[in-house]
């Protein structure tokens, strides 16, 4: 949970809200097929809710956020290029919409998908 002080009180931003932004930013990038559950708990979330917040975990400290994303990418692309643009896009969108600095974006490629059969 991330909190910010303002003159009238405190603002709390819960990880779930940040995850929505991260998910949207990650899926916008070319070559990203989808998110994959990163652990057993997230696998359960996925089983019951396809639109659930699986695949992303967020840690925060006083310096900012550390975001971990588990991805499934398109086969045939250079993974480094795809993950670089995902990281850049996620950092940009989270910082823009939330106003919280992002210190690290970790990307785990959990799988690949071949979409053209020939």
């Amino acid at each position: 949970m991330t909190s910010r002080e303002n003159p009238m009180g405190k603002i709390y931003i819960l990880p779930k809200a940040i995850k929505t932004v991260v998910r949207d930013a990650a899926l916008q990038s070319y070559g990203v097929i989808g998110l994959a559950p990163g652990n057993v708990r997230q696998s359960f979330v996925k089983m019951f809710n396809e639109e659930g917040d699986y695949g992303i975990s967020i840690a925060s400290d006083e310096r900012g956020l550390e975001i971990t994303i588990n991805l499934i990418v398109e086969y045939g692309l250079r993974i480094k290029s795809v993950t670089d643009s995902v990281a850049e896009s996620v950092k940009f969108h989270v910082e823009k919409t939330m106003g919280i600095p992002v210190t690290r974006v970790n990307i785990h490629v959990r799988g690949m998908r071949i979409s053209d059969e020939d």
Binding site: Y30, G76, L77, S81, E88
Partner: peptide, 15 residues
């Protein structure tokens, strides 16, 4: 082009 792809546009171009 695939090996040197940079950014979203580069990846799309390489495709």
């Amino acid at each position: 082009a695939l090996m040197g792809a940079r950014g979203n546009s580069g990846v799309i171009l390489s495709q």
